[in-house]
Amino acid sequence: MAAAAAAGAGPEMVRGQVFDVGPRYTNLSYIGEGAYGMVCSAYDNVNKVRVAIKKISPFEHQTYCQRTLREIKILLRFRHENIIGINDIIRAPTIEQMKDVYIVQDLMETDLYKLLKTQHLSNDHICYFLYQILRGLKYIHSANVLHRDLKPSNLLLNTTCDLKICDFGLARVADPDHDHTGFLTEYVATRWYRAPEIMLNSKGYTKSIDIWSVGCILAEMLSNRPIFPGKHYLDQLNHILGILGSPSQEDLNCIINLKARNYLLSLPHKNKVPWNRLFPNADSKALDLLDKMLTFNPHKRIEVEQALAHPYLEQYYDPSDEPIAEAPFKFDMELDDLPKEKLKELIFEETARFQPGYRS
Protein backbone atom coordinates (compact mmCIF):
# COMPACT_ATOMS: atom_id res chain seq x y z
CA MET A 1 0.00 0.00 0.00
CA ALA A 2 1.37 3.40 -0.97
CA ALA A 3 1.64 5.91 1.80
CA ALA A 4 -1.02 8.59 1.63
CA ALA A 5 0.40 11.65 -0.06
CA ALA A 6 0.43 14.72 2.11
CA ALA A 7 -1.55 17.57 0.58
CA GLY A 8 0.52 19.19 -2.15
CA ALA A 9 3.30 16.61 -1.83
CA GLY A 10 3.11 15.68 -5.53
CA PRO A 11 2.26 12.37 -7.14
CA GLU A 12 2.13 9.13 -5.16
CA MET A 13 4.34 6.16 -6.01
CA VAL A 14 2.89 2.65 -6.20
CA ARG A 15 5.31 -0.26 -6.71
CA GLY A 16 7.79 2.00 -8.45
CA GLN A 17 5.15 3.60 -10.69
CA VAL A 18 4.15 7.25 -10.54
CA PHE A 19 0.42 7.73 -10.01
CA ASP A 20 -0.26 11.42 -10.67
CA VAL A 21 -3.92 11.66 -9.66
CA GLY A 22 -3.97 14.15 -6.77
CA PRO A 23 -5.24 16.19 -5.13
CA ARG A 24 -8.71 14.67 -5.66
CA TYR A 25 -7.59 11.02 -5.43
CA THR A 26 -5.36 9.95 -2.53
CA ASN A 27 -4.51 6.91 -0.35
CA LEU A 28 -3.60 4.65 -3.25
CA SER A 29 -3.51 0.88 -2.90
CA TYR A 30 -2.28 -1.59 -5.55
CA ILE A 31 -4.88 -3.94 -7.10
CA GLY A 32 -3.15 -5.48 -10.12
CA GLU A 33 -1.85 -4.84 -13.60
CA GLY A 34 -2.70 -5.68 -17.19
CA ALA A 35 -0.81 -5.64 -20.47
CA TYR A 36 -0.24 -1.89 -20.48
CA GLY A 37 -1.16 -0.44 -17.14
CA MET A 38 -1.55 -0.74 -13.39
CA VAL A 39 -4.82 -0.60 -11.43
CA CYS A 40 -5.06 0.90 -7.94
CA SER A 41 -7.84 1.76 -5.58
CA ALA A 42 -7.90 5.33 -4.28
CA TYR A 43 -9.98 7.60 -2.06
CA ASP A 44 -12.08 10.14 -3.99
CA ASN A 45 -12.02 13.24 -1.79
CA VAL A 46 -14.99 14.80 -3.64
CA ASN A 47 -17.49 11.92 -3.57
CA LYS A 48 -16.03 10.42 -0.36
CA VAL A 49 -15.79 6.86 -1.72
CA ARG A 50 -13.00 4.56 -2.81
CA VAL A 51 -12.66 4.16 -6.58
CA ALA A 52 -10.57 2.14 -9.03
CA ILE A 53 -7.99 3.99 -11.15
CA LYS A 54 -6.40 2.39 -14.18
CA LYS A 55 -3.13 3.96 -15.36
CA ILE A 56 -2.66 3.39 -19.10
CA SER A 57 0.54 4.21 -20.98
CA PRO A 58 -0.36 3.21 -24.54
CA PHE A 59 1.34 5.78 -26.73
CA GLU A 60 4.34 3.71 -27.83
CA HIS A 61 2.16 1.09 -29.56
CA GLN A 62 -0.49 1.49 -32.25
CA THR A 63 -2.45 -1.54 -30.95
CA TYR A 64 -2.56 -0.23 -27.36
CA CYS A 65 -3.65 3.21 -28.62
CA GLN A 66 -6.46 1.58 -30.60
CA ARG A 67 -7.66 -0.44 -27.63
CA THR A 68 -7.52 2.57 -25.32
CA LEU A 69 -9.44 4.78 -27.74
CA ARG A 70 -12.07 2.06 -28.36
CA GLU A 71 -12.60 1.50 -24.65
CA ILE A 72 -12.90 5.23 -23.88
CA LYS A 73 -15.18 6.01 -26.85
CA ILE A 74 -17.54 3.14 -26.06
CA LEU A 75 -17.68 3.48 -22.27
CA LEU A 76 -18.27 7.24 -22.40
CA ARG A 77 -21.34 6.64 -24.58
CA PHE A 78 -22.71 3.62 -22.71
CA ARG A 79 -24.86 3.99 -19.60
CA HIS A 80 -26.02 0.75 -18.02
CA GLU A 81 -26.01 -0.83 -14.55
CA ASN A 82 -24.28 -3.99 -15.81
CA ILE A 83 -21.51 -2.20 -17.72
CA ILE A 84 -18.62 -0.47 -15.96
CA GLY A 85 -18.73 3.29 -16.52
CA ILE A 86 -16.02 5.93 -16.61
CA ASN A 87 -16.36 8.46 -13.78
CA ASP A 88 -13.35 10.64 -14.58
CA ILE A 89 -10.26 10.73 -16.79
CA ILE A 90 -7.03 12.43 -15.74
CA ARG A 91 -4.33 13.38 -18.22
CA ALA A 92 -1.81 16.17 -18.87
CA PRO A 93 -3.19 19.51 -20.13
CA THR A 94 -1.25 19.40 -23.42
CA ILE A 95 -0.83 16.61 -25.96
CA GLU A 96 2.98 16.93 -25.78
CA GLN A 97 2.93 16.31 -22.00
CA MET A 98 0.41 13.47 -22.21
CA LYS A 99 2.34 10.25 -21.54
CA ASP A 100 -0.31 8.44 -19.48
CA VAL A 101 -4.08 8.40 -19.10
CA TYR A 102 -5.76 7.61 -15.77
CA ILE A 103 -9.29 6.18 -16.01
CA VAL A 104 -11.40 6.40 -12.84
CA GLN A 105 -14.18 3.81 -12.40
CA ASP A 106 -16.37 2.33 -9.68
CA LEU A 107 -14.41 0.06 -7.37
CA MET A 108 -15.61 -3.55 -7.58
CA GLU A 109 -14.32 -6.03 -5.00
CA THR A 110 -13.53 -8.95 -7.28
CA ASP A 111 -14.23 -10.59 -10.64
CA LEU A 112 -15.79 -13.89 -11.71
CA TYR A 113 -12.39 -15.44 -12.52
CA LYS A 114 -11.13 -14.88 -8.95
CA LEU A 115 -14.46 -15.98 -7.46
CA LEU A 116 -14.51 -19.28 -9.40
CA LYS A 117 -10.98 -20.07 -8.21
CA THR A 118 -12.13 -20.07 -4.60
CA GLN A 119 -15.88 -20.76 -4.47
CA HIS A 120 -18.45 -23.19 -5.78
CA LEU A 121 -21.52 -21.19 -6.85
CA SER A 122 -25.08 -22.08 -5.87
CA ASN A 123 -27.69 -22.35 -8.63
CA ASP A 124 -29.20 -19.06 -7.38
CA HIS A 125 -25.88 -17.25 -7.82
CA ILE A 126 -25.30 -18.77 -11.26
CA CYS A 127 -28.79 -17.72 -12.36
CA TYR A 128 -28.39 -14.15 -11.06
CA PHE A 129 -24.91 -13.67 -12.53
CA LEU A 130 -26.01 -15.07 -15.91
CA TYR A 131 -29.05 -12.77 -15.93
CA GLN A 132 -26.88 -9.70 -15.33
CA ILE A 133 -24.36 -10.72 -18.02
CA LEU A 134 -27.18 -11.09 -20.56
CA ARG A 135 -28.88 -7.88 -19.41
CA GLY A 136 -25.65 -5.95 -20.05
CA LEU A 137 -25.07 -7.78 -23.33
CA LYS A 138 -28.59 -6.88 -24.54
CA TYR A 139 -27.63 -3.20 -24.21
CA ILE A 140 -24.24 -3.72 -25.91
CA HIS A 141 -25.80 -5.60 -28.83
CA SER A 142 -28.62 -3.04 -29.15
CA ALA A 143 -25.89 -0.45 -29.76
CA ASN A 144 -24.65 -2.68 -32.60
CA VAL A 145 -21.43 -3.39 -30.72
CA LEU A 146 -19.73 -6.76 -30.23
CA HIS A 147 -17.69 -7.10 -27.03
CA ARG A 148 -15.54 -9.94 -28.47
CA ASP A 149 -13.66 -10.68 -25.25
CA LEU A 150 -16.23 -11.87 -22.72
CA LYS A 151 -14.57 -14.10 -20.12
CA PRO A 152 -14.75 -14.46 -16.32
CA SER A 153 -11.97 -11.92 -15.60
CA ASN A 154 -13.91 -9.25 -17.55
CA LEU A 155 -16.97 -9.63 -15.29
CA LEU A 156 -16.53 -7.47 -12.19
CA LEU A 157 -18.43 -8.28 -8.98
CA ASN A 158 -19.05 -6.68 -5.61
CA THR A 159 -20.20 -8.10 -2.28
CA THR A 160 -23.87 -7.50 -3.09
CA CYS A 161 -23.49 -9.69 -6.23
CA ASP A 162 -23.82 -6.79 -8.66
CA LEU A 163 -22.06 -7.65 -11.92
CA LYS A 164 -20.52 -5.25 -14.44
CA ILE A 165 -18.99 -6.09 -17.82
CA CYS A 166 -15.61 -4.42 -18.42
CA ASP A 167 -12.75 -4.21 -20.94
CA PHE A 168 -14.07 -3.01 -24.27
CA GLY A 169 -10.61 -2.75 -25.83
CA LEU A 170 -11.40 -5.45 -28.44
CA ALA A 171 -14.98 -4.33 -29.10
CA ARG A 172 -16.14 -3.69 -32.66
CA VAL A 173 -19.17 -2.30 -34.42
CA ALA A 174 -21.03 -5.35 -35.76
CA ASP A 175 -20.43 -5.63 -39.47
CA PRO A 176 -21.33 -9.05 -40.88
CA ASP A 177 -20.58 -7.96 -44.47
CA HIS A 178 -17.17 -6.43 -43.96
CA ASP A 179 -14.30 -8.82 -44.53
CA HIS A 180 -11.85 -7.95 -41.79
CA THR A 181 -8.63 -9.02 -43.41
CA GLY A 182 -6.06 -10.09 -40.87
CA PHE A 183 -8.92 -10.76 -38.47
CA LEU A 184 -7.29 -13.81 -36.94
CA THR A 185 -3.90 -12.18 -36.51
CA GLU A 186 -5.31 -9.20 -34.61
CA TYR A 187 -7.84 -11.33 -32.76
CA VAL A 188 -6.13 -11.76 -29.42
CA ALA A 189 -9.21 -12.57 -27.35
CA THR A 190 -8.74 -15.48 -25.00
CA ARG A 191 -8.92 -18.69 -27.03
CA TRP A 192 -11.00 -20.70 -24.56
CA TYR A 193 -14.05 -18.45 -25.00
CA ARG A 194 -13.78 -18.12 -28.79
CA ALA A 195 -16.65 -19.23 -31.01
CA PRO A 196 -15.79 -21.97 -33.52
CA GLU A 197 -16.63 -19.74 -36.51
CA ILE A 198 -13.82 -17.36 -35.51
CA MET A 199 -11.34 -20.17 -36.06
CA LEU A 200 -13.01 -21.39 -39.24
CA ASN A 201 -13.93 -18.21 -41.14
CA SER A 202 -12.41 -14.80 -41.50
CA LYS A 203 -15.38 -13.08 -43.11
CA GLY A 204 -17.38 -10.79 -40.90
CA TYR A 205 -18.58 -11.51 -37.41
CA THR A 206 -21.90 -11.29 -35.69
CA LYS A 207 -23.35 -10.91 -32.21
CA SER A 208 -23.50 -14.69 -31.87
CA ILE A 209 -19.77 -14.78 -31.01
CA ASP A 210 -20.57 -13.07 -27.68
CA ILE A 211 -23.38 -15.55 -26.96
CA TRP A 212 -20.90 -18.42 -27.41
CA SER A 213 -18.59 -16.79 -24.85
CA VAL A 214 -21.49 -16.43 -22.39
CA GLY A 215 -22.23 -20.15 -22.87
CA CYS A 216 -18.60 -20.96 -22.01
CA ILE A 217 -18.91 -18.75 -18.90
CA LEU A 218 -22.15 -20.49 -17.82
CA ALA A 219 -20.45 -23.90 -18.19
CA GLU A 220 -17.54 -22.63 -16.08
CA MET A 221 -19.90 -21.38 -13.36
CA LEU A 222 -21.49 -24.86 -13.26
CA SER A 223 -18.20 -26.72 -12.81
CA ASN A 224 -15.50 -24.22 -11.73
CA ARG A 225 -13.37 -25.16 -14.72
CA PRO A 226 -13.21 -23.97 -18.34
CA ILE A 227 -15.23 -26.18 -20.67
CA PHE A 228 -12.95 -25.87 -23.73
CA PRO A 229 -9.37 -25.31 -22.48
CA GLY A 230 -7.61 -25.63 -25.86
CA LYS A 231 -3.81 -25.37 -25.88
CA HIS A 232 -3.74 -23.98 -29.43
CA TYR A 233 -6.00 -23.25 -32.39
CA LEU A 234 -6.65 -26.84 -33.56
CA ASP A 235 -6.75 -28.21 -30.03
CA GLN A 236 -9.47 -25.63 -29.30
CA LEU A 237 -11.60 -26.92 -32.18
CA ASN A 238 -11.02 -30.52 -31.09
CA HIS A 239 -12.19 -29.69 -27.54
CA ILE A 240 -15.38 -28.15 -28.94
CA LEU A 241 -16.15 -31.05 -31.30
CA GLY A 242 -15.29 -33.55 -28.54
CA ILE A 243 -18.33 -32.29 -26.60
CA LEU A 244 -20.69 -30.95 -29.30
CA GLY A 245 -20.03 -33.86 -31.66
CA SER A 246 -19.37 -33.63 -35.40
CA PRO A 247 -21.15 -30.78 -37.19
CA SER A 248 -24.04 -31.69 -39.50
CA GLN A 249 -23.80 -31.25 -43.27
CA GLU A 250 -25.99 -28.14 -42.96
CA ASP A 251 -23.63 -26.67 -40.36
CA LEU A 252 -20.62 -27.45 -42.55
CA ASN A 253 -22.23 -25.60 -45.45
CA CYS A 254 -22.03 -22.37 -43.42
CA ILE A 255 -18.24 -22.57 -43.40
CA ILE A 256 -17.01 -20.45 -46.29
CA ASN A 257 -13.35 -21.31 -45.84
CA LEU A 258 -12.83 -24.51 -47.87
CA LYS A 259 -9.63 -25.49 -46.10
CA ALA A 260 -11.44 -25.32 -42.76
CA ARG A 261 -14.43 -27.25 -44.11
CA ASN A 262 -12.20 -30.00 -45.54
CA TYR A 263 -10.34 -30.26 -42.24
CA LEU A 264 -13.63 -30.87 -40.40
CA LEU A 265 -14.71 -33.43 -43.02
CA SER A 266 -11.44 -35.33 -42.55
CA LEU A 267 -12.04 -35.90 -38.82
CA PRO A 268 -13.54 -39.15 -37.51
CA HIS A 269 -17.22 -38.91 -36.53
CA LYS A 270 -17.84 -37.86 -32.92
CA ASN A 271 -21.10 -38.17 -30.97
CA LYS A 272 -22.41 -35.34 -28.84
CA VAL A 273 -21.81 -35.72 -25.09
CA PRO A 274 -25.09 -35.19 -23.14
CA TRP A 275 -24.89 -32.03 -21.00
CA ASN A 276 -26.25 -33.85 -17.93
CA ARG A 277 -23.33 -36.26 -18.12
CA LEU A 278 -20.89 -33.33 -18.04
CA PHE A 279 -22.85 -31.44 -15.35
CA PRO A 280 -24.80 -34.08 -13.38
CA ASN A 281 -25.80 -31.69 -10.58
CA ALA A 282 -26.91 -28.78 -12.76
CA ASP A 283 -30.44 -27.41 -13.10
CA SER A 284 -32.04 -28.93 -16.23
CA LYS A 285 -33.25 -25.50 -17.39
CA ALA A 286 -29.69 -24.16 -17.10
CA LEU A 287 -28.49 -27.02 -19.31
CA ASP A 288 -31.22 -26.34 -21.87
CA LEU A 289 -30.09 -22.70 -22.13
CA LEU A 290 -26.44 -23.81 -22.24
CA ASP A 291 -27.25 -26.06 -25.19
CA LYS A 292 -28.87 -23.16 -27.06
CA MET A 293 -25.84 -20.89 -26.44
CA LEU A 294 -23.17 -23.49 -27.26
CA THR A 295 -24.60 -24.29 -30.68
CA PHE A 296 -21.97 -24.87 -33.38
CA ASN A 297 -23.87 -23.04 -36.12
CA PRO A 298 -23.94 -19.28 -35.34
CA HIS A 299 -27.20 -18.88 -37.31
CA LYS A 300 -28.95 -21.35 -35.00
CA ARG A 301 -27.44 -20.00 -31.76
CA ILE A 302 -29.87 -18.26 -29.40
CA GLU A 303 -29.91 -14.43 -29.40
CA VAL A 304 -29.61 -12.30 -26.28
CA GLU A 305 -33.32 -11.35 -26.04
CA GLN A 306 -34.38 -14.99 -26.40
CA ALA A 307 -31.82 -16.03 -23.79
CA LEU A 308 -33.19 -13.48 -21.30
CA ALA A 309 -36.71 -14.86 -21.89
CA HIS A 310 -35.59 -18.47 -21.30
CA PRO A 311 -37.39 -20.32 -18.44
CA TYR A 312 -34.10 -20.62 -16.50
CA LEU A 313 -34.11 -16.84 -15.95
CA GLU A 314 -37.86 -16.36 -15.43
CA GLN A 315 -37.53 -15.10 -11.83
CA TYR A 316 -35.52 -12.10 -13.08
CA TYR A 317 -36.82 -11.56 -16.62
CA ASP A 318 -38.44 -8.14 -17.02
CA PRO A 319 -38.19 -6.63 -20.52
CA SER A 320 -39.33 -3.23 -19.18
CA ASP A 321 -36.23 -3.17 -16.94
CA GLU A 322 -33.75 -4.39 -19.56
CA PRO A 323 -32.85 -1.14 -21.31
CA ILE A 324 -31.38 -0.78 -24.78
CA ALA A 325 -29.04 1.88 -26.18
CA GLU A 326 -30.57 5.11 -27.46
CA ALA A 327 -28.89 4.78 -30.85
CA PRO A 328 -26.60 2.34 -32.63
CA PHE A 329 -22.93 3.06 -32.07
CA LYS A 330 -20.86 4.29 -35.00
CA PHE A 331 -17.12 4.67 -35.25
CA ASP A 332 -16.41 7.59 -37.57
CA MET A 333 -13.46 5.72 -39.01
CA GLU A 334 -11.82 2.32 -38.96
CA LEU A 335 -9.11 2.69 -36.30
CA ASP A 336 -7.03 -0.27 -37.45
CA ASP A 337 -5.23 1.73 -40.12
CA LEU A 338 -4.47 4.92 -38.19
CA PRO A 339 -0.91 5.70 -37.02
CA LYS A 340 -0.34 5.97 -33.27
CA GLU A 341 0.22 9.75 -33.53
CA LYS A 342 -3.30 10.24 -34.94
CA LEU A 343 -4.75 7.87 -32.31
CA LYS A 344 -3.04 9.93 -29.59
CA GLU A 345 -4.74 13.07 -30.93
CA LEU A 346 -8.10 11.31 -30.88
CA ILE A 347 -7.55 10.10 -27.29
CA PHE A 348 -6.60 13.67 -26.31
CA GLU A 349 -9.83 15.04 -27.85
CA GLU A 350 -12.01 12.25 -26.45
CA THR A 351 -10.78 12.94 -22.88
CA ALA A 352 -11.04 16.75 -23.06
CA ARG A 353 -14.45 16.86 -21.37
CA PHE A 354 -12.87 15.93 -18.02
CA GLN A 355 -10.36 18.80 -18.09
CA PRO A 356 -10.91 21.75 -15.71
CA GLY A 357 -12.75 24.60 -17.43
CA TYR A 358 -13.85 22.45 -20.39
CA ARG A 359 -16.47 24.02 -22.67
CA SER A 360 -18.09 21.78 -25.27
Rank of each mutant, 00 (worst) to 15 (best):
R194W: 09
D291W: 05
A174E: 13
I256E: 11
A195M: 01
D149W: 05
Q119N: 01
A260Q: 02
L237T: 06
D175H: 04
R67I: 00
Y233N: 15
G136Q: 06
I53V: 13
K54T: 08
A2H: 08
P23V: 05
Y36D: 03
P280Q: 12
V145A: 03
T63K: 14
L222W: 04
S284H: 07
Y358C: 14
L150P: 11
Q315A: 08
I256V: 12
H80T: 02
L156R: 06
T351V: 04
P176K: 10
N276A: 11
G242E: 05
I324F: 14
K207R: 13
R277L: 12
Y102L: 07
L155I: 02
N123K: 15
E314C: 00
L343D: 12
F78H: 10
L116T: 04
L112K: 04
E33F: 01
E350R: 01
D162K: 01
V101I: 11
N87L: 03
Q17A: 10
R67P: 03
E326P: 00
M293F: 04
A92F: 00
A260P: 01
R261L: 15
L69W: 01
C65H: 04
A4M: 08
L258N: 10
K117P: 08
S246V: 01
P323L: 11
F228G: 00
I217E: 10
L338G: 02
S208D: 05
T159I: 12
V51P: 00
R277Y: 07
I126E: 13
T185S: 15
L156S: 07
D179E: 13
I302G: 10
I83Y: 00
A327N: 00
D175M: 11
E96P: 03
K342I: 15
M221I: 15
E326C: 05
A174Q: 08
Y30H: 03
L218H: 09
Y233F: 15
P247R: 07
S223E: 13
E303M: 05
T26Y: 10
D283M: 02
L116D: 08
N281S: 08
D162E: 15
S202P: 11
R261M: 09
Y193M: 08
D20L: 10
T110D: 07
I324Q: 06
G245E: 08
D321T: 02
E12Q: 12
P298T: 15
A35G: 08
G10V: 15
H269P: 03
L237C: 06
I227N: 14
I56T: 04
L289Q: 14
N201R: 07
I126K: 10
T351W: 03
D283Q: 02
K203C: 12
T110Q: 12
R353A: 03
V51C: 10
S246E: 00
I56P: 08
D321Y: 15
R261C: 08
V104C: 02
P319F: 08
K270R: 12
I89P: 02
Q132Y: 06
G32Q: 03
H232F: 00
K114R: 14
L157R: 06
Q249G: 06
